[in-house]
Nucleic acid binder design. Structure first.
Lengths: 337, 337
DNA sequence: TATTAGCACTCCTCTATAGTGAGTGCTAAC
DNA sequence: GTTAGCACTCACTATAGAGGAGTGCTAATA
């Protein structure tokens, strides 16, 4: 158990280091307001805090720096939720100014606002299309042998694919297919589309029209519909302004990580709601050893939810980021669009 | 006019520097095969080439490095078109293996292949949607007061917008609107859609249905259709492997440039076809002082064309990039999709 | 006259050295 | 239990010298 004084000192050190990125020395702390102990006392306490694993030194005679465990403790016990400033509120609410609100646009803009407000990199995972349900099918012919298949979901998302039309199909045949699809498959979530198609629609279509393989196999290729919860980025270059990323190698690794869609998705906690903080190696990605990731989920309308992540150095301003994320996800959830 | 010997020396210097990124010294050149002159002779020639502005020194006693003018001369007069290797051909043709060929996917994959083959960054400007012509309209209702408006173009591109439905509109009213639109506006290029809408469809709709403002003004907001020729990137981090980008600042500026859609578009020559090379300051972007950009345009099917750009250091392997771009745009144009 | 060998000179790069200052750990006094 | 004092550590900076790659110029050579 830490004493009050130790708590106070740990807090000051973390806050100071977050602000300055410089190792914090005992004299520096002693000079702070609200600290009535001498530098020597603080040195003793710091030595204890280091023994307990909360602090580290960069070299024998340097000031102290929070360890991962130190940040973890800070986040778990010392983080008082900060009230969000009216400025930040204004910035975030500017998102909803436009009359016509469109999901993709709002998300894109959100990513950019988030990275501006926090000075870190933001990543937003769009609503998972897989869970949307089919509202309507349509097929629009382009040429004799090609057409566009369109699926509109209940949330207004539109998926479309180029398909080739079998030679023996007439326009009215296509119309029939569309009718059958609309008849049988409306209300089915995209993730189950392929299954249901095979179970329910395929035989019917075969009965009416004979071979359908060429036409439909490609439309409903499930892998292509893994819209995967589209990923939006904001402030990718913000990292470059952080002193901990003056190392080209780290930058490269991080950037490469962000180019890999699959890896980026793994930084989001699978099923969790609320705000999550992962610090340094907790991310279990070599490239993010020195990063912390704060994630939050939002729900749009009823169920479908997406996630927001802020990536910054472990030395990130947790207070601020948490309060901004909290406010933003609430706004997202509150507005119905 | 340069002598043969000067040409030969300039060529060797540029080739060597492109390969090694190290300033080239006279002894080094003298040792090369096919160079029968002594180092001293070469030194004299190099001094002359420097006076003429083709070479530079990094400091008084360093070897020579090509100047911008040197690269320009090299590109204009010394660049022998290199035959593309079968390996590269294979890699590029792998693009067209899939049966169902989809524009967006092919382009995305192209960007990635290009950056892999060249080790530089690739940027592809997709076909300009503005020039596509309307093939069909559709409006799919979602809730009582919202719907999705869909426009399919003759090239199979699908644009869609969330719109809100005026309270007094019934489903059959919406059907009427769609019919009118399909009646009057099919065949119109997207860029003229707003105009034509106002001229031809608006009054008709008004006659039939009264006020239509709320419904249509948002659908056809021309600015939102500036699909702008979507931009696809490949190998954004490849720069980081180039020794000339060990400077954090340069990297930042370049990355920031690439985040700005509008600026990126300005690197493409406006109306030109064929392959264009811009070297260093010819790009007139501070961030690209040390970059060369090679652009090429491709046409898909009939007229609509997009562009491809490769961004690398001025010390880029022009021979190779040109041959790859040339082959690739030809493939693009050849295949009809 | 064109080419080349030779040599002095320049300047980058690397290494070693010393000096400075911030910060610590420990001891002894309060 | 707290604090002042002091020796010690170590990063950082500046300086100097050695080594080496490369040049420019001069004079000899073909």
């Amino acid at each position: 158990m830490l004493t009050n004084r130790q708590l106070q000192i740990l807090q000051v050190i973390v806050d100071d280091f977050i602000a300055t990125a410089q190792p914090v020395g005992s004299r520096q702390i002693a000079k702070k307001e609200g600290i009535p102990f001498s530098a020597a006392t603080i040195r003793n306490e710091m030595a204890d805090l280091e023994d307990l694993g909360f602090l580290e030194k960069t070299h024998t005679s340097s000031g102290r720096v929070p360890s991962e465990k130190g940040y973890r403790f800070y986040v778990d016990h010392l983080l008082k939720p900060q009230v969000i400033t009216t400025q930040d509120i204004k910035a975030i609410q500017s998102l909803f100014q436009d009359r016509v609100i469109e999901t993709e646009q709002v998300i894109r803009k959100s990513a950019s606002i988030l990275s501006d407000l926090t000075t870190y990199t933001s990543i937003i995972l769009g609503p998972d299309v897989q869970l949307h349900k089919v509202k309507q099918f349509a097929i629009v012919s382009l040429t004799a042998d090609s057409a566009v298949a369109i699926i509109v979901t209940d949330n207004g998302h539109v998926e479309n694919r180029l398909i080739s039309i079998p030679k023996n199909y007439s326009p009215s045949d296509i119309e029939k297919v569309v009718n059958i699809l609309n008849d049988r498959l409306v209300g089915v979530p995209l993730e189950q589309l392929q299954n249901k198609l095979e179970q329910e629609a395929a035989t019917v279509i075969k009965q009416h029209l004979g071979a359908y393989e060429g036409l439909l196999s490609s439309i409903f290729d499930i892998h292509k519909y893994q819209g995967e919860g589209k990923i939006y980025y904001g402030g990718k270059t913000n990292m470059l302004n952080q002193p901990e990323f003056h190392d080209l190698n780290k930058v490269r690794m991080l950037m490469e990580l962000m180019e890999r869609t699959s890896q980026i998705q793994s930084i989001f906690p699978l099923d969790e709601t609320g705000i999550h903080i992962r610090i340094g190696s907790e991310n279990s990605h070599l490239a993010m050893e020195d990063c912390s990731v704060i994630t939050a989920s939002y729900s749009v309308g009823s169920e479908q939810k997406g996630s927001i992540a802020i990536i910054g150095p472990t030395r990130m301003d947790y207070k601020r980021v948490v309060s901004i994320l909290d406010f933003m996800t609430n706004e997202f959830t509150k507005r119905i669009w």
